[in-house]
Structure formats: structure tokens, C-alpha cells
Amino acid sequence: MIHRMTAGVATLAALLAATPAWAQSSNRGLQTVADGAKVTGHMTIDFNSRSVRNNIGLDKYSIEALTVADLMAYSGSAQRKPEDTITYSLRIDVNNPQNPSQIAKDVAILRGETPIDEGGRYQPESGNLRLDIVKGQQSSGKFGGVIQGREVTRWWELGEQINRASQAADKLYSRTVNGKVVTIQVKNPDPLSFQGLVLAPGPFSFLPQTRVSGNLDYDYELGNWLTDNNGISFQYAVGNQAYTDKVTGSIRYVEEEGNFTDAKGQSRNYTGYYDYNLRFNEPVVKPEEAFFGGENKDADVEAFFGTVEQNQAGLYGRVYYLDSEDGCRREKNESGQMECIGPTRSEVYWDLKPVKLTYSQLGNWFKLEPLMIGPFNDE
């Protein structure tokens, strides 16, 4: 749980008044996040567009203290009208770089709209999505580019998608596990694509304007997310030095029931979770088709998505989901039976661990994640 600032208010206030919050302590961006740091938080998603009890049809994502180590924390909400627009209002608290136990609240706001066109393209610049610094010397930075959402977002369309996938060419994904190259195949993956995406600068100088490119591919058969060998690239500059970080790996979905203890020490139930295994700047591994048998062996799949070698620079852990279908709308499934079109509510809990990441790397990833909450959480 965040230790809220109870002392040193005047010192931090003077710091914020003297200079923009995002211009503080640029050297910190190259420092490694402290061992044991966590990413924790809670989000409630109300899928009102799936409910028979709500005629407004706006899906709402309510974030409670998404705390990114001792860097910053989000709170607020986003509302999405499916296939039309998503509107953000997320407040950002920041940790004092000179004394991370001190926290300044509501220093910045991520706000504005992101229109969604007929092709499922999220376009933040068209809706003036921006990051506003509202304390200290005020400033505003805009997001740009495009996020191409997944092609299929409704389960009752999945049968057709999987049928098409069975006729499509495989795409191979490889990674090194315990010194061995492990390769799996996915039929017709659906990419969540970042096309010239620009992350607005802030709320620190070591989180400058950043360009993001690449794909996070979705596997409909198993419900997993994967990166190909190109990964997801983040390009930015700190001071006069240019940096490019490449994120590769997987986010595996596990459908099972259980319980865990959240960041506040409360026991929580879950109906499934995403298992993060994302690595930063790992050596490139090329799929060797000549040595691939053409089928996913259980041992290779388990190894590919396994939790070994989590001492490499990366982001690991789980994001838990507790889904419910109260008052859901129903459609006919492939058997002709009426079935809920998806959860009407999801309680989401982050429990992630950054390993050997710099503050710039971690901050950039968690400026990207809020932009993905719509397509990433579609069923």
C-alpha cells in the first residue's frame, strides 16, 4: 500500500512549484527499479454494453490506485462506447525522485478521447488524448498514431475466425528456455498493433515523448497474447542519449478458480488470470522451421509459457480476474443454445514484479497499458 505523504509537504511543494513535475530528476530514468518493487492496483470493468439492465451501453473501466512501484499511481476512469470512442480521465500521483516515500497527488491527468473507426483503429490524436501537468509549471503533451484493435471482439464470431484460422498459414513464435530454443505455432493470430503510436511526455523528464511500434498477437484457440521476433519497440531519448527498448514474450491466460491476497492484505477470489512473462531487450531468437515438427507439443507449450528464467530484465507476475455474468445479454452459440455474450463485470487486480528494469522502461510500459484496456479486455 502506498505510504501517503505526511511530512516534507513544504519541501515537495516547493520542488513542484519551481519546475514542471515531468522535468524532475532525469537521471532517475536510468536507475534500476528497486528489488522487491511491485505493480499493484484494482480495476472494476462494468461491461454495460453486454447488460440487459443498462440501456446506456457505455463500458466503464474504474481504476483504483494502479501503483507502479515507487514511481507513480493512476486513479480515475475510462468510458467506452464500443466501436465508437473511449474517453479517459485518469489522475496521476507522482513519487518525489529525491525521496520516493513522498508522494504528490494529482500532479497530472491523462484525459481526452480516442475515437474508434469502423476498422477498429483507436486514434488518440483525433480525440485530443493528452497528458496534462496541472501542478507546478503547467504543460500539455499529446498522444498520436494508431492502435489497431483486434479484428474479432465477440465470442459468437470466434467460430468463423477459428475456421478461417484452420485454413491459414501458421505463424511461429520462438524463445530460449534453459538454453534451448522452443518454438510454437499459432493459426491466424489477431494482432493488437501499434502503428506510429506516440506516448505523450510526462509526468517525469525520463518519460519523454516515446514512439511505440510492433504487435501483441492474440491466439483465439488458447486465449494468449504473444509477441513475434520484432517485439514491441519503444524509442525515446533521455538527455542527449537515444534509447530503443524491445519487449518480447507472452501474456498467458489461465482459466481456473482460486484466491490470492491483494496489496491491502485482503483475500480475493478469482476466476482466471493473465500470467505475464515479458522480457526487455532479450537476444533475438529466430524460429527454425526446419527443426519444427508442425505441431505444438504439450511440453514445448508449457516450456514456452513457463515461469522459469524470471531473473532476466522483464515484467512478471499475474493480473487476476473475477468475472460475473449477472444480467447479461444472450446470443445463440454454435449449438443453437442461448449463451451470455461475455462477463458483465470484471474485478481486475494487478500483482506484477519488475525485474532489472529502469524507471524509464517501467514507466513507458505503464503509459501504454491504459491505452490497451479496451481491446485487451474484450472477450
Rank of each mutant, 00 (worst) to 15 (best):
R252W: 01
K187T: 07
D117R: 04
E157A: 11
I2H: 03
A37V: 02
W22H: 14
Q137N: 06
V284P: 08
Q195M: 06
T210V: 08
P82G: 13
E334G: 08
Q98A: 15
S26E: 14
I56Y: 00
I373K: 00
F143S: 09
N128G: 12
P201V: 07
A299C: 02
G272T: 02
I92C: 07
R53M: 01
Q79N: 10
F143H: 10
E334H: 06
T261P: 03
P82L: 04
T11Y: 06
R28I: 15
T176W: 01
M43R: 03
A69R: 04
R154S: 13
N269Q: 05
A7M: 15
L207H: 15
G127K: 09
F280Y: 11
L158C: 06
Q138K: 10
D117L: 10
T44C: 00
S101L: 08
D378E: 09
K142D: 14
D59P: 01
S174C: 11
N27E: 10
N48V: 01
V177W: 02
F206L: 06
T244I: 14
L226T: 11
V198H: 11
L199C: 11
N27S: 14
D190W: 07
A73I: 04
C340A: 08
N269R: 04
R80K: 13
R252N: 03
E289P: 11
D70C: 07
V9P: 05
T271H: 00
A104G: 07
S77G: 01
N48P: 02
N269F: 04
P124I: 05
R28L: 10
D70T: 15
S62Q: 05
D70A: 14
L197K: 05
G57H: 01
A73Y: 03
I45K: 01
I109L: 12
C340L: 00
S139R: 14
D59T: 01
P115G: 12
P97K: 10
F206D: 11
G141T: 05
V348P: 00
Q102R: 13
A10W: 09
I103L: 08
N163Y: 15
F376P: 01
N99R: 10
R154K: 09
T114I: 07
L371W: 00
Y320V: 00
A168D: 12
F194M: 08
P115M: 15
E282P: 15
F143Y: 15
A200D: 11
K332E: 05
D217V: 08
R330Y: 03
I92T: 13
N364Y: 08
V181L: 04
E282D: 14
L15I: 07
R175A: 09
P203E: 13
D323M: 03
E221F: 09
L226K: 06
K187G: 11
S89Q: 14
G239F: 09
P124H: 12
F143L: 13
S51A: 05
K332F: 03
L197D: 02
K356C: 10
V177H: 04
E289R: 15
E113Y: 01
W225D: 03
V247C: 10
I341A: 02
K246M: 07
N259M: 04
